[in-house]
Amino acid sequence: MSALNTESSFGWVTRAIHWAMALGVIAMLGLGSYIARMEVGMSNLWLFGLHKSIGVVLLALLILRLIWHLASPPPRSLPADTPWKDSAARWVHRSFYVLLIAVPLSGWVGSGASGLDVVIFERFTLPPLAPTSEAWESSAFAVHFVLTKLLALCVVLHVAGALTRRDGTLRRMVRG
């Protein structure tokens, strides 16, 4: 089992990061929607902390993934049956990278602008990325809202693509 990616296979590092992020992103889309709508009280306040903690870990994983892919480029996608699927897959993959930077950053900016400490794992306080201001807070969360919906759309397209292809694409991401 190779750590490195090759021209035709995904090494375990890429796969591990992919599946960890897949799990994390899907869970976070649910958790985020839940915390934004729940009646907040003493018993569930910690879920905000959990959301921020996982979000920052996902941001770190994304950066790790980018660095890793500079060191060990992933294989090119297998050609799909129609060209539009190739470009759709390419655009979805690119969007993932952009969104997985912009989504956690917008959450971080919005949280910091509220004037409250951004505490992750109940002990590390992250510096605020924006001044305390309602304008920063509401626009950052508006961005967070819209981008998370786009992210969910990308996940749907991505999963639909992965599950409908019969050319070994999914197997390659699962087993290398």
Binding site: S114, G115, L116, D117, T132, E134
Partner: peptide, 8 residues
């Protein structure tokens, strides 16, 4: 505490 004493 932070929310209460803060600017908002």
């Amino acid at each position: 505490t932070q929310a209460m004493t803060g600017p908002k």
